[in-house]
Computed example of a mutant assay.
Amino acid sequence: MAKLYFYYSTMNAGKSTTLLQSAYNYKERNMNVRLYTAAIDDRFAVGQITSRIGINQPANLFSASTNFEQDIRQHHAQEKLSCILVDEAQFLTKEQVYQLSDVVDKLSIPVLCYGIRTDFQGNLFEGSQYLLAWADQLEELKTICECGRKANFVVRLNANGEVVKDGEQIQIGGNESYLSLCRQHFKQKMGWL
């Protein structure tokens, strides 16, 4: 039975690595997968899912205007798809999460979404909010804070390595821009403790 999965975490927990491993497992068994990544994420290369450990795979781009159900239905009619994998799922819209649930419910294709749960202010991203609400299965991928405890949050850093407390929710960046922390250290860095 197909399900909608949401694998979530902070940055540096291996989300893209896990996604690419899943894609490899399907392909190794001669099954077709369709990979998606956010068009706005251009850190490594546009149209490519890249892991920090150095593996990558071409992917289809999605933006706020992408209709997943329509796109997947069209490709499924041409070539049977066994799984859909979505990286940077925090950038999905509410409507797109619903469309992905329709892919599961109407086409019986499993959909595996990977994304960050909260932004640099501790607020849910839209895609993450609706995946947490509507996914059949939730899996937390874990990474650690500088103190060794589980990291649940990220802070945004400026060019001088100082914590940024205000700004747009979405700003693409990697280790130079974000730091994963436990709740206690997140609150300390934000000046809330």
Rank of each mutant, 00 (worst) to 15 (best):
M1Q: 07
A2C: 08
K3I: 08
K3S: 13
K3A: 09
F6E: 00
F6A: 00
Y8H: 15
Y8Q: 14
S9E: 00
S9T: 02
N12I: 03
A13W: 11
T18W: 04
T18Q: 03
L19D: 00
L20S: 01
Q21D: 02
S22T: 09
A23L: 01
Y26K: 13
K27N: 12
R29N: 15
R29P: 15
R29Q: 15
N30Y: 10
N30L: 03
M31I: 13
V33Q: 01
V33H: 01
L35T: 02
L35S: 01
L35F: 03
Y36V: 08
D41S: 05
D41A: 06
D42P: 03
F44E: 08
F44T: 13
A45E: 10
V46Y: 05
V46M: 14
S51H: 08
I53Y: 06
G54H: 13
I55E: 06
I55N: 10
N56C: 14
F62C: 03
S63V: 10
S65Q: 15
S65T: 13
F68R: 04
Q70L: 14
D71N: 09
D71H: 06
I72Y: 14
R73M: 05
H76Y: 07
K80R: 15
L81V: 09
I84A: 03
I84D: 00
I84F: 14
L85P: 04
L85E: 03
V86Q: 00
A89I: 04
Q90E: 11
Q90R: 07
Q90C: 13
L92E: 01
K94G: 01
K94S: 11
V97P: 00
Y98A: 05
Y98F: 13
Q99W: 10
Q99H: 11
L100W: 05
V104C: 14
K106N: 08
P110F: 00
V111D: 00
L112Q: 00
L112M: 11
L112D: 00
G115V: 04
T118W: 04
F120M: 10
N123R: 15
L124H: 13
L124I: 07
E126V: 14
S128F: 08
S128H: 01
S128V: 09
Q129E: 08
Y130C: 05
L132N: 02
L132K: 02
D136V: 03
Q137P: 02
E139P: 10
L141A: 03
K142I: 07
T143R: 12
I144C: 08
I144L: 15
E146P: 02
E146N: 09
R149C: 06
A151G: 08
N152H: 14
N152A: 09
F153C: 12
V154L: 04
L157M: 15
G167T: 12
E168M: 12
E168V: 11
Q171Y: 12
E176I: 08
E176L: 10
E176N: 13
S180Q: 10
F186A: 06
K187I: 02
K187Y: 10
M190V: 09
G191H: 07
W192P: 04
